[in-house]
Nucleic acid binder design. Structure first.
Lengths: 262, 262
DNA sequence: GGGACCGGGG
DNA sequence: CCCCGGTCCC
């Protein structure tokens, strides 16, 4: 089974890129999208259903939005924190549509778009940290039901220095501060491992390059898109690759897909 | 000699269409553009100079803007009413960049983008009529200097019922009212003839189709782009054609080129 | 419907 | 740098 994650930065703008990518990657079973940036009523279902995919969407206007595109029907699709946790202490953490989960073949797949955080120490940064803390409770609840949990998406955190083209002054950079790393580590310590690192110990592998200042041309990237797997899935995994091809196309997303093979 | 007029609805958005069109129409000597929608500092000169064309521009931010693209250098380029008339009674008629003229091989070529008028009877409609009245004085001044005057561009008036796909209720439609026609006729009565009609008496030939409601697919068009010629040039003319091909391309301008052969 | 600008977000 | 959503204009 192949599961992919891709922050597409608008599913409508990128629909042709996504369809072309599915055509050249027909063995991908589930594609997890982030930043669909579209309300559910306007989601382009037809391009996917025409190609034989099911679509599961959780969108909002303008910002955020996640979706799962699957060859086979998914089961028990749940959107947002509250759908899993019941009443949550800070309901505003579900205002932004960033989290969808479903089951396929005994695997609990969680697709997420972690808040970016904007500026270190700002209000959005604090929201990001609170979001990650609630994510821990959310995943605890899922882990209580299944040992096979895969979480993937745009985590907006480079978890190690080798995941940033230039980690200098990283404490000033959102996505790179110790507190973000530690807060995410608290989540991952529930029993999730970075499957990309099972196969690739070296740095210099990135999943996002800023549109500005020729980030991609100069390979000034960050690895912020991941698949984190619980032990049974981690053992099963036979590959995890970053596909840089879509980032080379005209008018690309700033992110590129990451694919895990189980 | 071939002279073309084309309202491109943004020269930057349409630059590839324009260059492709020049490549397939290498015998066009002068291309008059309207609605360049770009300030002079941002005009894309290079695509034209790379292909061996001179560029003469008179632009503004967002709206309006005209340009002349020529294989040979043009002479005595003048922008706006005041450059020809000196002080004008209503200087605001030069606030919008809609008028450029130059000479080539003894022909005075005038490239214009007549105000649209927005709604019949409104403030912009009145501005359009005043603009056309000043145009008459402007052309009188040019005619005093040369018998060979060609005026072309987007006139935003369908001069006869056969120039509208459906002339019903035309008194309510801007670009079709008698007062617009009469005001433009006052200009043309200085000695200009519609050279398209030298070769084509039938209706159903249009140069503009609204983007909305499938205007082009249903051929709901208007003929509002013209070449009007003084007698010596009118006699010389051997062809005048509307080239609908660019309007069939993806992401086209709503107007298509009109080419006169002298 | 499709340009352009602006302001917000990354 | 590029996306979105408003607003203006045609």
């Amino acid at each position: 089974m192949k599961i992919a994650t891709w922050n597409v930065n608008s599913v409508r703008t990128r629909i042709n890129h996504i369809c072309d990518w599915l055509t050249t990657n027909p063995d991908v079973d589930v594609l997890c999208l982030q930043e669909t940036k579209v309300i559910d009523n306007d989601f382009p279902h037809a391009p996917f259903s025409d190609r034989g995919y099911q679509t599961y969407i959780y969108g909002q206007k303008s910002y955020n939005g996640v979706a799962m595109i699957s060859r086979s029907p998914l089961e028990n699709v749940q959107m947002g924190f509250a759908s899993v946790l019941g009443k949550i202490a800070e309901p505003s953490l579900d205002d932004q549509k960033r989290l969808i989960t479903a089951q396929l073949a005994g695997i609990q797949i969680v697709n997420m778009y972690v808040p970016n955080g904007s500026e270190v120490g700002g209000e959005k940064y604090e929201y990001k940290l609170r979001w990650l803390r609630l994510l821990k409770l959310y995943l605890q609840a899922l882990l209580a039901q299944s040992p096979n949990v895969l979480i993937c998406g745009d985590f907006n955190v480079a978890i190690a220095d080798i995941d940033i083209y230039d980690p200098k002054n990283r404490e000033t950079k959102v996505m790179a501060t110790d507190i973000e790393r530690d807060t995410l580590a608290e989540v991952l310590n529930l029993g999730f491992q970075d499957v990309f690192r099972k196969f690739e110990p070296e740095g210099g592998h990135f999943s996002w390059w800023d549109y500005r200042a020729g980030g991609f041309a100069r390979n000034r990237g960050w690895r912020i898109d991941y698949h984190f797997l619980t032990a049974p899935l981690y053992e099963r995994a036979t590959a995890c690759v970053i596909d840089k091809e879509p980032r080379k196309m005209p008018q690309p997303s700033d992110h590129t897909p990451v694919i895990v093979t189980l």
